[in-house]
Design a protein around this nucleic acid. Structure first.
Lengths: 175, 175
DNA sequence: TCAAAAGATGCATTTAATATGTATCTTAAA
DNA sequence: TTTAAGATACATATTAAATGCATCTTTTGA
C-alpha cells in the first residue's frame, strides 16, 4: 500500500515580508499621489536595501499595480486609483500559493477523497481570509485625514521636493 | 526622522508542514480510536522520518491533544474525543504566530496608529480564517462512514493488530 | 529483575526559502 | 551628452524548516 500522503502537500499558506513591503509601498505611493516617488526615497524611509525593494517594485510594475518611469525625473506612482486596488488582489498576486485556493472549489477531485476533507477545510478558511481582504481597498488603508502622511513622513502635498543647490547647515550632524 | 517601519514586522502568517502533519496525525489517531498507535506505524504510513514525527508528537502531547504511553504496548491516542478537538485550536497552538492575532483586537495601540490600519486589516482577515476553522472539529474531518480508514489504510475497527504470537487477550484495559 | 518495546530529549546536519548586496545595463529628461 | 532614474542578472548571507542520529527514560511482561 502506498504511503497515505497527500500529493503536493497541503496549502503553503504564507504571508511573507514580500507582501508586507508590497502593501506598505503601495500605501506610500497612495499617500503622495501628486508626484513620482523614487525607489531610493522609499528604501531609505523603510530602511531596507534599495536592491531588495527594486525587485519588489519590478514585480508590482509587472503585475500592474505600479507605474514606473525611468530617467531623470522618473519614479513610481500607483498605476490606478487607490480605490481600485483591492487588498485581496494584492495578496493573491504577491503570494502565488494563495491563488491556488480557487482550484479547491467545487469540481476538484480532492474533495471527493475523504482524506482531503482537511484540504477542503483549510481552503474554505483561506477563502474566508481573502474575502475579508476583498472588502477593503488600498484607499481604506490610506484614509483621507492626512495622518498617514505624517506617520510615513512624506512631504505634504504642496511642498515639492526641496533640492536646494546651496545648502546652509547651521547644526552639524551630531552623529 | 526614524524609518517608517512597523515594529516587529507584520503578521507572519504561515501554515507549515508542521501543522499539516499535526492535523494528519490527529486524523489518523481519530480513525482508529480503539487502540494505541505507535509513532513507527504512522511514520511509515505517512512516509516521513520517525524522529521528525517524534518531535511533533511530543508537542501534541504537551499541548494536550494526544495521550502518549511509553513502554511495551504503549503508543498514541487522542487525548479526548475528536468532537472536542477544534481545528482552529489546533492551528492556533501549532502555529504560535497565529495566536498573536488576538492582541490586534480592540485596545491594541497599533489600531490607533493610522499606519497600522494595514495590520488591522490583516488581523481581521486572519480572524475570519480562524473563525472558519473554529466551525469544524476533528470529527468532521474523520467522518463516520469509514472511508477515511480505507484511505489511510488503517486496519478496520474489528480486526485487532495482527501480531499472532499466540496471545489471548480477552479484554485489554482500554483506559 | 531484566530485557524489550515504546516514547522523550538533545544535538548536528541538510535543505529551502528569504533577504541582501554588487555590478551592469537601459531609458529618458535636462 | 550627462545624469538620474529604473531594469536585470547574479552572488551571497541569513534564517527557518525539515531531517537524521544518538542516547536516555519509562513501562510492561516474561
Amino acid at each position: 500500500m502506498p504511503p497515505a500522503t497527500c500529493p503536493g502537500g497541503l496549502l503553503a499558506m504564507n504571508i511573507t515580508q514580500h507582501t508586507d513591503y508590497a502593501l506598505r509601498l503601495l500605501m506610500y505611493l497612495g499617500a503622495c499621489p501628486e508626484r513620482r516617488v523614487t525607489i531610493k526615497e522609499v528604501a531609505e524611509r523603510f530602511d531596507i536595501s534599495r536592491s531588495h525593494l527594486m525587485k519588489l517594485v519590478t514585480e508590482l510594475v509587472t503585475k500592474g499595480f505600479v507605474d514606473g518611469a525611468r530617467g531623470k525625473g522618473g519614479g513610481l506612482r500607483l498605476a490606478r486609483a487607490a480605490t481600485r486596488i483591492g487588498l485581496g488582489d494584492v495578496v493573491r498576486q504577491m503570494e502565488p500559493s494563495f491563488a491556488l485556493v480557487e482550484c479547491f472549489g467545487s469540481g476538484s477531485h480532492c474533495l471527493l477523497d475523504p482524506a482531503c476533507r482537511l484540504k477542503g477545510a483549510l481552503a474554505s478558511a483561506l477563502q474566508a481570509f481573502l474575502s475579508e481582504l476583498d472588502r477593503l481597498t488600498l484607499a481604506d488603508l490610506i484614509g483621507d485625514d492626512g495622518r498617514l502622511q505624517v506617520t510615513l513622513g512624506v512631504p505634504p502635498a504642496d511642498a515639492q521636493a526641496p533640492r536646494p543647490t546651496i545648502v546652509i547647515r547651521p547644526a552639524p550632524p551630531a552623529g
